[in-house]
């Protein structure tokens, strides 16, 4: 695979993973600022190792052991279940039906909780390590899911997805270190909107490939599929704005 092809193949995983890394970085930053950096960095490192093992075992096993068509149908189904859920939430947020995801609010809430727990200077900060470990592992599991999903096409696709996810991690972590503040400038809700559409489009694509359907233009068919999801999502947000012009800001569980 040449560099340009690799970049194109790695881009969806890069964008999707970046969203998850932003959320994990917010928590790790909050721990580091309130309780010192040693424990959260060790927690982050432990979670990264755990994730590498999960991706290596699950991803490589899935790609190499499960028959190709069955794998594509399985991964396509999972992508649709999670992708359409993300897309639905993003549309409801844009229409003002549920509250927007705000990294600054999450960061301040996390700071207050961590400060309230107090800090023992004499021993290793287990609370800081565990909070960072959990945040990185949970968001990282979603990254692992994204990598396995985008890498379902075979070894090259898996490698490209891994490259995209690692690059996203490096960029987000470097930005977090440089700014020492949550990455509120990242248009997270827009990215989630795009990621939901991308995951759903890949879900349709893989599921149909699993049924041995030939797409016109092969992977290029992904472009009109993503476009269809984006157009319908935009129109749906407009429809919701007509139903509730003032918005609602209700709990996601109530709609």
């Amino acid at each position: 695979m040449d560099l340009v092809s690799l970049l194109i193949a790695a881009t969806p995983a890069f964008i999707a993973s970046a969203v998850e890394f932003v959320e994990a970085t917010t928590i790790v930053l909050a721990v580091g600022v309130t309780r010192g950096w040693r424990a959260p960095l060790l927690g982050t490192l432990a979670a990264a190792v755990a994730l590498a093992v999960i991706i290596a075992l699950l991803g490589v096993t899935l790609v190499n052991v499960v028959p190709e068509h069955a794998l594509k149908m399985f991964v396509g189904s999972l992508l649709l279940l999670f992708g359409l859920r993300w897309l639905r939430k993003a549309i409801l947020r844009f229409a003002g039906i549920i509250a927007l995801h705000d990294e600054e609010v999450i960061y301040q809430k996390e700071l207050a909780e961590l400060r309230a727990q107090g800090l023992s200077r004499s021993e290793f900060d287990k609370v800081g390590a565990v909070v960072a470990f959990k945040a990185v592992l949970l968001e990282g599991l979603e990254v692992a899911f994204i990598v396995i999903a985008f890498g379902a096409g075979g070894t090259q696709a898996l490698n490209a997805a891994i490259v995209g996810a690692i690059a996203a991690g490096i960029v987000v972590i470097l930005l977090g270190i440089a700014l020492r503040h949550p990455l509120t400038m990242v248009p997270e809700n827009w990215m989630k909107f795009g990621v939901g559409a991308m995951l759903s489009a890949f879900g349709v694509f893989w599921f149909a490939e699993g049924l041995e359907v030939q797409w016109p233009g092969d992977a290029l068919a992904l472009l009109p599929i993503i476009g269809a999801f984006l157009i319908v999502s935009y129109l749906s947000a407009r429809m919701l704005a007509m139903i509730l012009p003032e918005g609602a800001h209700v709990n996601a569980r109530n709609v």
């Binding site: 649709l80 349709v204 749906s236 139903i243 509730l244 609602a248 209700v250 109530n254 709609v255």
Partner: peptide, 29 residues
Amino acid sequence: NAGWLLLALLLALVVVNLYAAGHNARHKI
């Protein structure tokens, strides 16, 4: 045409689901 049919079905599903969600939210408030 199974792929395109699946796409059409899912797009319709999203629109119907969000329409219902919008009306649910209106009833709640």
